[in-house]
Each structure stands twice: as structure tokens, then as C-alpha cells.
Design a protein around this nucleic acid. Structure first.
Length: 568
RNA sequence: GCACCCGUGGUGUAACGGAUAACACAAUAGCCUUCGAAGCUAUUGAUGGGGGUUCGAUUCCCUCCGGGUGCACCA
């Protein structure tokens, strides 16, 4: 399906080229903020007027005359400083609503990514530690971005770069050997392992030597020490089982889980490559480093002075592996913005080594902040993701009981799950990625206003109308004419355009904002226009409108990883 | 010290360089004998300060102030 925005851009471009042959024109079409300014607008006369030293208003008038107006456009007006405003014709919606229905689950999809592969790394919790609420961001944002990229045609490979290796592990091994006990850990793995990790950091306060002992244990692990490897494998297994429960609950999945340890036999090649090309050199204190061109960026450390590997070493091996395995055009690292500097270092070294031609991006997001409680894994003081989801579902269940007591118990539970998990996801996705997320229970559990249940509720009401109206279809529809009908209808063709924009900028919140506006228009329409009791042809038109609304809402929420309820 | 991110009504947020800065929460006043009130309608209220670029700046540049984050063997 060709975007209307694109069609209009072409109309404008054609007229402008006719007026100024040979000029290189950059035509932009946008959505006016105020609906009274039409459905699409172009500022071409403002740009060109300046360039050609012409009065922009007069130029706009002239271009408006020159544009060959197709049937689906009601009128083209000039306004303001020289804007061209395009209004969709009510007649346009006659066919359009049918097309949306026909496209069904595919409505919103497009093809810019067709034939291209993107690899994403999201979630990547560290083993032996529980998933805290701060893991929500990478998991949820990354999942939404993966879904959105797939919708615009990319082949998406989801590879979870699990934190299953590194010095932190040496610390845990030391702690387990010193204070741990197999039976206790087996009984309740993650919390017991966390206790050991916390204990280690408490002891470090008293004895700094422990840091070295932790590093030594990791070194032993890396060199193949049998006891350490056995312990390590055991812990990874226990952790994955726990993580899988959370991922299932969040409805996220991965094609691969290549943890950091997967790259342990692939790092030497990178070290050799960089060393032989003179890119890696010995640093002041014996470590292997990659100095960078920009004097403001500290060098990237490749190998510790004791020869053990570092995060960067594994990351470089990972990039090489991704390149060789999938030949992607795009690699996305969905990681908190605290690591911005690290990624600049990594990407620069990747470039020097010429590991890949792919766009390699750090999709950064804001930090989760806790006004109510300080978060520190080292101190064991975290809000568990599981705890948050439980709380959200319990609250949602309480509200379903209250609002819809007649629903069977199993259905209530199902609704509570979709609403609870959905609102947590929506709270994260509805805002700009880079804005810090201030965690408050109130916000995460918000079930009214701009929230997932608002959208789900609108959807359920629409579905209810469609169920009741299914016997009352007349086939022939009247033109949409009520302001509330048109306000809703005019938003529908924007959906694929919004999805495409969201994919280009890796911003799920654009879709969330759009869906909220759409649901809001639907709710106003619902209050203003009676569907079932209207005249047959009007009823038919409204039923089609409601139907198209459900298609867009369902598809849009799916891109955010949020499910809908037929009833709630 | 250097670098990056963020400063928008009381609170939480939105706005691809565009037109009268958009929503939600909270507050206030209304709307269920009418398709589901988790809803609708209305009212009050904001771009940290100062320069600059531009026909036009919340958006881009500079500077100051405030908050957050990161800076060689953590991941």
C-alpha cells in the first residue's frame, strides 16, 4: 500500500518541478497540528519562495492551481504564511475502510526493509542475579523495536547477548566457594546466589584484597579450570530457567541466546588481528589497549594486564560473528545510555578493524530512577520484575472484578494478565526512549487516562458493537459526514506512515502516542454517534469505521507487544 | 577537569525546524431509562536565564544555571 503522504508529496513535487524545471527540490509533507488545517500539508512554497525570491503566499496559490487534484482529495487550500493544505474527501473512506479490513493483520506493514537483515541485542540480563525492574527497559523497548522493524519488512534476528561471563562471575565463584552451600542454592537459586554476590561486596568493604581474588577466579574459569566451569554451567542453567519464566510472561522471545561466553574461543582471533595491524598496543600498566583518534575519548581496553578478556573483547568478537553469520545491514544494541561512551569506543575500534559494513547503533534509553528506593544489585536492594508484574496483575484483577463481575473467573484472570502486563509495558513505551523513567508504583500501575487499559477498553467496546451489529449489516454505506466520524476516520490512513517513521527512528513511543490519539477519537465518536440505532446506511458506514478502528488498534498494540481483549 | 543525556502547567509526559505548544494525572462543574462510565464534555494552568541562525525555534548553534550519567584493566 502506497502511503498517502507519499502520493501527496509526488503531486506537490510534480507541480513544483513544472514551475521550476531543473531545480533540485526537497519536498516535505507533514501532518498539520490543527485538524482545521487539513489532513496533510506542505511548506514547499515557504522554502521555494525564499529560494526564488517570490512571495510565498502567491506561490502557494499558484502551485495549488497547478496540482492535478485526484478524486480522493476534497480540496487544496492555501493558508498562513504560505502552507498548502490537503483535505481528504469523505468519498475516499468508502473504499479505504474496506481495504483496511481486507488487509487485516497486515494493515500497517510496509517494505523498506525487504530483503535486509537486522540483528538486535535486547534484554541481556546477567546470570546469577534476578531481573529487576530496570531490565524492563531493554527487554520491552527492544522487543517493540524488533516487532516494528519486522513490520516494515526487515528480517529480524533476535540474539540475546546474555551476561554469563566476566569478572563478576569470578566474584560469585569466590563467594560460593567461601560461603556457599549447594543444597541451599538448589532450593532457591537466584535469591541465594544474589545473597552471595551481596555478601562478597560487603566483605570487599573490609578487605580490598577480595577484588583480586575474584579476578583470579574468573581467570581460572577462562583458562578451563574444571571445578569453576562446572559451577559456572550450573549457575547459567539455573538462571536461564528463571529468566525464561519472565520472558514468557512478557511475551518476548529470542531466536538465539549467544551469551558472552559463546565468544570465548573467538576472541583470540580479534586480539591477533588488532595486534598484527598495530591497532592494539600495550598501555601504561601492561594492558592491551586500542588508542582512539579523538583525544577526548579514552582508549578502549581490549585485554587486562593479566591476559584475561574484557567486555570489549567479547563485543568485538560478537560483532564479527553477527557479520559473518547474518550479513546484516543493521546491528542494534539496546542498552542503557550510561554506556554511551563505551559504545563510541567500541564502534570506533570496530571501524578501525573493518569488522562490518553494517550500521552499528547503540539504541540508548534513559535510566530508571527510583525516588522511593535506592536501586543497587550489589546491595541486594532491588524491585524485582516479577514483583512488579504480580502487583500489576493483582490490581488489574481487582478492577475487573469490580467493573465486570459477570465475566467467568478464567476470563477475568486472562483479562487481568493482559491488562496488568500491558500497562507496565505501555508505561515504558509511551514515552521518549531517552527520557529517564522515574519509577513509581502509581505510574507503572496506572489503569486510566493515557494507559494500556484505555486503549484496550476502547477496543473491547468497539468489538462489543461489532458483535451486536453483525446481524444488522446493510451492505450499502452512507458517506461519513459527522465531525466525530471524520476525526476518527482521518487518522486511520496515517497508521502505516507512523509505523514506518517509528521504525526509521527506533521510537516505539510514536506508535503509542498515535494509538492513544486514535482511541481518544474513538471514545469521542462513541459518545457522539450512535452506531446500532442509526439509519441503515449510516449504521453500515459507522460499523465499517469501527471495524477499521479495531484492526488498527489491534495491529498497533501488537507492535508494542500488548495484547487486546474481546471483552474486559 | 573532559564528554554525553535531560530541563515544557502543581505532578508525569508529547510535539519529523512550522500555523493558536498537545495530552494524562490532580482540582472544579456537568453527563449512565440511549451501542460497556476502565468512558465523555467543559474550566484553570507551562517551554530554566541570556544571546544567535531562520520568513518561522520547545526543536539547531553559543553561553550561564539546575538535574542525571560516564571517563584504563566492571559489564
Amino acid at each position: 500500500m502506497v502511503f498517502l503522504k507519499e502520493k501527496i508529496r509526488e503531486l506537490v513535487a510534480k507541480a513544483a518541478t513544472q514551475k521550476f524545471p531543473g531545480e533540485l527540490l526537497d519536498i516535505k509533507v507533514e501532518y498539520p497540528g490543527d485538524p482545521s488545517h487539513g489532513d496533510y500539508s506542505s511548506n514547499v512554497a515557504l522554502d521555494l519562495g525564499k529560494k526564488m525570491k517570490m512571495n510565498p503566499r502567491a506561490l502557494a496559490q499558484e502551485l495549488a492551481q497547478m496540482i492535478q487534484k485526484p478524486e480522493w482529495i476534497e480540496k487544496i487550500e492555501t493558508a498562513g504564511a504560505g502552507f498548502l493544505n490537503f483535505y481528504l474527501a469523505p468519498k475516499f473512506f468508502e473504499d479505504f475502510l474496506d481495504e483496511v479490513k481486507k488487509a487485516g493483520d497486515d494493515y500497517g506493514k510496509s517494505e523498506v526493509g525487504k530483503g535486509k537483515t537486522v540483528v538486535t541485542d535486547t534484554s541481556h540480563p546477567n546470570v546469577a542475579k534476578p531481573m529487576g525492574v530496570h531490565h524492563l527497559l531493554s527487554t520491552i523497548i527492544g522487543n517493540a523495536i524488533s516487532r516494528i522493524l519486522a513490520a516494515v519488512g526487515y528480517t529480524v534476528v533476535r540474539d540475546n547477548y546474555l551476561g554469563d561471563y566476566g569478572t563478576q562471575f569470578g566474584k560469585l565463584l569466590y563467594a560460593y566457594k567461601t560461603w556457599g552451600d549447594e543444597a541451599t542454592v538448589k532450593k532457591d537459586p537466584i535469591p541465594e546466589l544474589l545473597k552471595l554476590y551481596v555478601k562478597f561486596h560487603e566483605e570487599v568493604e573490609k578487605d580490598e584484597q577480595l577484588e583480586d581474588k575474584g579476578r583470579a577466579e574468573f581467570k581460572k574459569l577462562e583458562q578451563g579450570d574444571a571445578q569453576n566451569r562446572k559451577l559456572w554451567k550450573w549457575v547459567v542453567e539455573l538462571s536461564l530457567q528463571e529468566f525464561q519464566k519472565i520472558w514468557d510472561r512478557l511475551d518476548v522471545s529470542f531466536d538465539f541466546i549467544h551469551g558472552e561466553s559463546f565468544y570465548e574461543d573467538k576472541m583470540q582471533a580479534i586480539v591477533d588481528m588488532g595486534t598484527s595491524r598495530g591497532i592494539f598496543v600495550k598501555g601504561e600498566k601492561g594492558a592491551l589497549i586500542a588508542p582512539l583518534k579523538d583525544p577526548n575519548i579514552p582508549p578502549c581496553i581490549i585485554q587486562k594486564s593479566d591476559g584475561a578478556s574484557l567486555y570489549a573483547t567479547r563485543d568485538l568478537a560478537r560483532i564479527q560473528y553477527w557479520e559473518e553469520t547474518w550479513h546484516p545491514v543493521l546491528m542494534l544494541n539496546v542498552v542503557d545510555m550510561a554506556q554511551e561512551l563505551y559504545f563510541r569506543q567500541l564502534f570506533e575500534v570496530t571501524g578501525m578493524l573493518k569488522l562490518t559494513e553494517a550500521r552499528n547503533l547503540h539504541i540508548a534509553f534513559g535510566r530508571m530512577r527510583f525516588p522511593e528506593k535506592r536501586m543497587s544489585t550489589r546491595k541486594g536492594d532491588i524491585i524485582l520484575l516479577e514483583e512488579l508484574l504480580d502487583e500489576a496483575q493483582a490490581l488489574a484483577l481487582k478492577i475487573v472484578e469490580e467493573k465486570n463481575p459477570d465475566l467467568p473467573a478464567a476470563a477475568k484472570k486472562e483479562v487481568a494478565k493482559k491488562v496488568g502486563v500491558g500497562s507496565v509495558k505501555y508505561a515504558v513505551l509511551a514515552q521518549n526512549r531517552l527520557t529517564d523513567v522515574t519509577f513509581t508504583w502509581d505510574k507503572m500501575l496506572s489503569l486510566e487516562g493515557n494507559s494500556a487499559p484505555y486503549l484496550q477498553y476502547a477496543y473491547a467496546r468497539a468489538k462489543s458493537i461489532l458483535r451486536k451489529g453483525s446481524e444488522k449489516r446493510s451492505g450499502k454505506m452512507a458517506l461519513l459526514h459527522e465531525p466525530a466520524e471524520l476525526a476518527l476516520a482521518r487518522l486511520l490512513p496515517k497508521f502505516p506512515e507512523v509505523v514506518a517513521l517509528s521504525a526509521a527512528e527506533f521510537k516505539p513511543n510514536l506508535i503509542a502516542n498515535y494509538l492513544f490519539e486514535l482511541a481518544s477519537r474513538f471514545s469521542s465518536f462513541y459518545a457522539a454517534c450512535d452506531v446500532l440505532n442509526a439509519e441503515p446506511e449510516v449504521r453500515e458506514a459507522r460499523l465499517k469505521l469501527v471495524e477499521a478502528f479495531t484492526v488498527v488498534t489491534k495491529n498497533g498494540l501488537k507492535l508494542l507487544g500488548i495484547q487486546v481483549n474481546e471483552e474486559m
